[in-house]
Nucleic acid binder design. Sequence first.
DNA 1: GCACGACATGTAGATATCCAGATATCCGGC
DNA 2: GCCGGATATCTGGATATCTACATGTCGTGC
Lengths: 121, 121
Amino acid sequence: MLSPLAEVDVRPWSRLLRAVADETRLRIVALLAEGELCVCHVEAALALPQPTVSRHLGVLRAAGVVDARRDGTWVYYRLAPQPRPEVQAVLDELVRGFVGRRGVKSELVRIKKRTGPGACD
Amino acid sequence: MLSPLAEVDVRPWSRLLRAVADETRLRIVALLAEGELCVCHVEAALALPQPTVSRHLGVLRAAGVVDARRDGTWVYYRLAPQPRPEVQAVLDELVRGFVGRRGVKSELVRIKKRTGPGACD
DNA sequence: GCACGACATGTAGATATCCAGATATCCGGC
DNA sequence: GCCGGATATCTGGATATCTACATGTCGTGC
């Protein structure tokens, strides 16, 4: 026996939680809770430079929190369904803490409108 | 309007998630899910030096994840009830991901036994 | 009041993370 | 094949985090 509690592998949980613990990435999760968005939408919503958004999305994707779908020039991101139900439950509760609070949905609609339907410029 | 999504304050969530995202602190949460423990128990369970354990417990306490109760020489820690139900729900689901998995409970009992009932030496 | 044990805190070094700017890749249209 | 827009990756520097060791504090018993 190397170390007590070795049989409970917390590393996957740590990876997941570290991925969503960042403030910017939490905002991204809150946005994607309303539906899929392409990078430029997130960029506009958060008012951050594109490489920064892309990097954060990359971290979330590496952690399995989001999925990416390519549509021509654009890449659409959405919350990824979790294979492990315990993980899904945690993310569900986390998202529930954001969704329904005033601001998120309307702000998203506004940004989508401002940037045009299905496009980014 | 300073920044979109400003009305959704993710900072408290970020603080909470950063606190529990660390592997060692996740292990501590898993331990405390079974009941309160004093520092020396956690120290023995995780096989880490005392200052390290104390520091991690301090981080968890600062984030409101755990409460501390002093009993003579010993300080007992336990998972803190969360005033905000959304936060409680997330932590509940997180803990549920650990509890019931083989090893945690029996390991805890073993450590408590080995260190004696109510004492640490 | 002194000594000892349990716990907390200060300090320093190694490591990881975040951000901004420049650059690279990938795709669609010509 | 070339160009332009959308996205990804590389680079550097600033900042935060983790750990270990030493030291400080608090409470108990003599």
